[in-house]
């Protein structure tokens, strides 16, 4: 069995004539937790969408769980997506429908159950199990739009986990959350990593979102992979300044990292 969960080779994605993503080589092993960093507009979300087959690539090969995305038809793509848990960057807001938290989590089982098959008792048991594991039991019957941003994010994480995925893709899972919620999400990601059989690709802006168990970081800037390695090798003040500009310092401790304005670091 191929030990790579994700493999990109000479990947090029274009928007019109402009190349927005060009990655020569990137592979992620099964069971690995990789942090994907980069400034706004670097191409992180585009990369994630390529992995899900939601964004077509012009050239190269995108292989996920041994499947070449470009060769898959609609059915094959659907089957592959059911093995990938995806937590989007933006909280969906296209619906007026007052769906409950339990119903939103159950969306994760919908593709797996398949067309013409209702969700079975076992599907609902899995849904309730993850609602409980993520501490959402008391909110299960609440309307999704009536709960806080952090709780909504947890709901989407539960939705991804009920798929019992082999790959979990988290696109800025702590965006717009306060520090308390951010730490709770980081703890949850660490717990998922302890499961051992889950490949996690975590996209984030803030280094403090990376859990201490994250032992590999890939950095994208202007659509190109500019660094890939252990946090100790990749994260340097030079790198941070080249990405985000002068005036920032990098602090590290117990396997966690944080970027702060220089004036704070030197106060």
């Amino acid at each position: 069995m191929n030990s790579n969960a994700i493999q990109l080779e000479k990947l090029t994605v274009r928007a019109g004539r402009k190349t927005i993503l060009a990655i020569d080589n990137l592979s992620i092993d099964r069971g690995e937790l990789v942090g994907l960093l980069g400034p706004n507009g670097a191409g992180k979300t585009t990369l994630l969408r390529c992995l899900l087959g939601l964004q077509k690539h012009a050239r190269g090969r995108v292989q996920v769980l041994g499947k070449d995305i470009k060769t898959l038809g609609a059915r094959g793509l659907g089957l592959l997506r059911r093995r990938i848990g995806y937590v989007p960057q933006l909280l969906p807001s296209h619906s007026e429908m007052p769906l409950t938290v339990r119903e939103v989590v159950a969306i994760g089982r919908t593709g797996i159950a398949g067309l013409f098959h209702p969700l079975r008792k076992r599907d609902w048991e899995i849904v309730d199990e993850w609602i409980e594991r993520l501490g959402l039991s008391s909110l299960a019957a609440h309307g999704y739009t009536q709960i806080s941003g952090g709780q909504q994010r947890k709901t989407l994480i539960a939705r991804a986990m009920v798929q019992q995925p082999e790959v979990l893709i988290l696109d800025e899972p702590t965006a717009n959350l306060d520090m308390g919620w951010r730490e709770r999400i980081v703890e949850i990601i660490s717990e998922f990593y302890q499961l051992g059989n889950l490949t996690i690709l975590l996209v984030c802006h803030e280094l403090e979102v990376l859990p201490s168990c994250c032992n590999r970081i890939a950095i994208i800037d202007s659509g190109e992979l500019v660094a890939d390695g252990s946090p100790g090798d990749v994260l340097s003040e030079e790198m941070i300044r080249s990405l985000y500009g002068l005036g920032f310092d990098l602090l590290a401790g117990n396997g966690r990292y944080v970027v702060v304005p220089s004036e704070v670091a030197h106060a």
Binding site: Y86, L99, I112, F116
Partner: peptide, 27 residues
């Protein structure tokens, strides 16, 4: 009755429905 669960997902977000492996465009 047949597509209730798919429509529930599409209503929540068509993109998310596609991402979890639902044939959203067809439904």
């Amino acid at each position: 009755l047949v597509f209730r669960k798919e429509m529930r997902a599409i209503m929540f977000s068509r993109l998310d429905a596609q991402a979890v492996g639902i044939h959203a465009t067809a439904v």
